[in-house]
Nucleic acid binder design. Structure first.
Length: 258
DNA sequence: GAACCAAAACCAGTTACATCA
DNA sequence: GATGATGTAACTGGTTTTGGT
């Protein structure tokens, strides 16, 4: 399934009317078309008594969208719907989108997570939904994406925490061993202190000049090398198999010479 | 250009409903 | 069939953005 929506700036017209195939395909979405008030009792396959008793959506007339009426109609449609109908009954009713509609919206979300009014209208028309429904779907979809990213971030931070806890434990143990060594071998105290600095970019540890020479002789092996608790770049949630942006890693250590 | 206002867009949080185990 | 859990469409209220005066 291919969705053709005009990208911002790509065209003046957000209409999809030029795509005959899509118009034909749009018939698929009639299944979940919003019923006009008088259609409620027969249009929905679920057909709950609730639906029959309460008109769900007012007939907004969006089937007749076109020409200059579009902007004005959109303005009306996008205004927040009231829960109450004219009789004061709560008419809120949830309509489950069909698989085709959801898939179509998903496809368009891949293209752009936000819609301009024209795109929204075109999509709504194509899917036989109200623009407000498309708008809400995109809002909820963005929220879901954000939630997913938060979960990924949370998981990542948990791992960082575990790593740091483990590193802390290891360093405590090492400190105890060094103290024990110090008491048993007083010559160790003659060694100069080693100053370690960490590159904020690549997070490598380097020894500073004066101590460097000695540091190389002070038996700093791999076990005492500080562990980078953040070995990986911060994971991002790429919901649509998007390739993450190429890392912009500048190695100023080398670039200074070249 | 700054200040103000209204409308639209957006978001976070919540509610209500459909569906499934 | 009743019930709780879950997913999600739809709503609410607040904030930000945008365009007009």
């Amino acid at each position: 399934m291919v969705l053709v929506l005009n990208h911002p700036g790509s065209s003046e017209n957000g209409s999809i009317s030029g795509n005959v195939g899509l118009l034909a395909a749009a018939r698929v979405f009639e299944v979940n078309r919003l019923p006009a008030a008088e259609e409620v009792s027969s249009a929905n396959s679920v057909g709950s008594p609730f639906q029959r008793d309460f008109g769900i959506y007012a007939n907004t007339g969006n089937e007749n969208l076109g020409g200059n009426d579009v902007v004005e109609t959109e303005r009306v449609l996008s205004s927040r719907a009231s829960d109450d109908d004219e009789n004061g009954f709560n008419t809120r009713k949830k309509l489950r989108l069909s698989k085709e509609q959801s898939a179509f919206l998903e496809e368009s979300f891949k293209e752009h997570s936000t819609l301009n009014p024209k795109q929204k209208l075109a999509l709504a028309k194509q899917l036989n939904l109200r623009p407000r429904q498309v708008e809400v779907w995109f809002q909820n979809r963005r929220a879901r994406t954000k939630l997913k990213q938060t979960e990924v971030d949370c998981e990542y931070l948990k791992r960082c925490c575990d790593t740091l806890t483990e590193e802390n434990r290891r360093l405590h143990k090492e400190l105890q061993e060094l103290r024990a060594l110090k008491t048993s071998n007083p010559f160790c105290t003659q060694l100069p202190a080693t100053t370690l600095t960490m590159c904020p970019s690549c997070e490598r540890v380097a020894t500073t000049s004066a101590a460097a020479t000695n540091a190389r002789t002070t038996n700093i092996d791999s076990t005492t090398k500080p562990i980078n608790p953040f070995p990986l770049s911060r994971p991002r949630f790429y919901p649509f198999s998007q390739t993450p942006p190429a890392p912009n890693h500048h190695h100023h250590h080398q670039s200074a010479a070249s």
